[in-house]
Design a protein around this nucleic acid. Structure first.
Lengths: 266, 266
DNA sequence: CGTAGGATTGAGATCCATCAAAATGCGTGG
DNA sequence: CCACGCATTTTGATGGATCTCAATCCTACG
């Protein structure tokens, strides 16, 4: 599974040398391990495994899940290309969730021990790591607010809009997206049954909000969806970048963007 | 509000000098600012404020909330003595939630800039900070799993058990606890209305799981509550420390323990 | 072409929010 | 010490939203 790293990890490509410097970048690239693609359904790591590295998605899509006593799976988050996962496991020293590929996917891993060494030497990297972790907390909070005390349409609208923004890494938000996950997974992640999820989909279709056939979704009326999701996101509706902070965009819910290593305006 | 720091912050007291060393400890204590107690309902910080420091609870109890478009408040988490809050705001550079005292409380703040400086000099502190952040992600995940697709009794049982463990910082779990928050807040944090929350309380009373009068709660049948909450926590029921990692315990949901600065077995 | 898994739709039951009202607790002031 | 007023808690009745069970349809894939 651990192949020699030919092409540099896309995640590290995304990181701006302007922020971290060429030296840090090259050191980071050396400690990144490319993994060969895995098929849909394959596990990247399993709950209970020793924690040794954090992961980033190169292509495909990953879900992180936990299982309850009865074996029911609860999806914690989806992780799209350029996003990190496995950060929650630093604390415990072993993985607290299981990472499963939703489709043919490839990830790269950053040895946490090595990452610590490099970070010891480069404060700038350390700060980016802190921001990355903080962004993960923020994402969780957004997802939490999304499902706590909100109706099914609001939850689904929120999730779809979030996925739409995250699927286009830098491009303007696309009209059409190809969802990497089933209706069941989509619903599970926001606390809905597959049936209810499907029903809300057809309702959205009837209301002219989207066109959907299978996993292909076309966003027809984005403002309409946003009106539904606004009950969740709050903060005056527009989820704009706060101010002129050395900042990046944080999607309301979902994965942790590697963009956190970026610096767009500086 | 910012008074000279007389007594060392309880949070830093909890940090083990054995891990960080006396030098780091004294530097940390110097950058910690004690704040005078605030009354119930007072805000520690408000969403939109510039982010300058992370906070820890000395005594009392804090809730962090976000407001949706309609002004409805959604409680993200409760923070009990010894726990940190405000970590989600590192990413954005400004606070993304509002921290409100549930009762007369005191907090201390750690200037983030100063914290970074000290962390630059002391790798051990940096690692503890990373574990602290990771623990926050873990807590959010636990809370998320708790409310996603679970019935009201399971959610409330989970929350009560979590609060019970966290109210006793090191002592064995107490039979009786005095909840710092109203039924409404209790319910809001797990996506329930005050009425439903009250009903589940009476149901728990009828079933002999707890005795409750006002905010005083006596845990009569802990295994019974755990059976309800087990549908959430999963992981083979017992939430034990993973292995012989340089690890600490992470309560399933809620705040971030300052215990993260501790090292019990090493 | 046939099968299997996913998606959709339907009917019924259940859970929870809502609206409404009564009861309890608590601080204040008489 | 008691009475009052307000907030919180509790309880009830009702309706709506979502889950469950079940069947059908669709699509992808062998």
């Amino acid at each position: 599974m651990t192949t020699p790293d030919r092409s540099p990890c896309i995640v590290l490509d995304a990181a701006s040398p302007a922020v971290l410097g060429e030296t840090v970048m090259s050191r980071l690239q050396r400690l990144a391990t490319q993994h060969s693609p895995v098929a849909a359904g394959e596990r990247i790591y399993t709950a209970g495994d020793a924690f040794t590295a954090i992961y980033a998605v190169r292509f495909g899509a990953i879900k992180t899940v936990v299982d309850d006593s009865f074996g029911n799976e609860q999806i914690m988050a989806f992780h799209l290309p350029g996003e990190f996962f496995g950060l929650a496991s630093i604390h415990a020293g072993c993985h607290r969730n299981t990472a499963i590929a939703l489709q043919r996917s490839a990830v790269c891993s950053l040895s946490y021990q090595a990452l610590e060494s490099v970070a010891d030497a480069y404060p700038a990297l350390r700060r980016q790591l802190m921001r990355l972790m903080s962004g993960a907390i923020l994402s969780e909070q957004g997802a939490y607010a999304a499902i706590a005390g909100h109706a099914a349409p609001a939850r689904l609208a929120f999730l779809l809009l979030s996925l739409r923004l995250r699927m286009a890494r830098d491009q303007p938000p696309p009209d059409r997206v190809s969802l990497p996950m089933s209706r069941a997974d989509l619903g599970n992640s926001i606390g809905l049954t597959p049936e209810t999820t499907s029903r809300v989909f057809t309702q959205f279709r009837r209301d002219g909000l989207i066109e959907a056939s299978g996993r292909q979704v076309r966003f027809v009326n984005v403002p309409g969806l946003e009106a539904l999701a606004d009950a969740i996101v709050g903060q005056s509706g527009t989820d704009q970048v706060p101010q002129n902070v050395a900042g990046t965009i944080s999607s309301g819910a979902g994965g942790v963007r590697s963009q956190s290593f970026d610096e767009d305006a500086s």
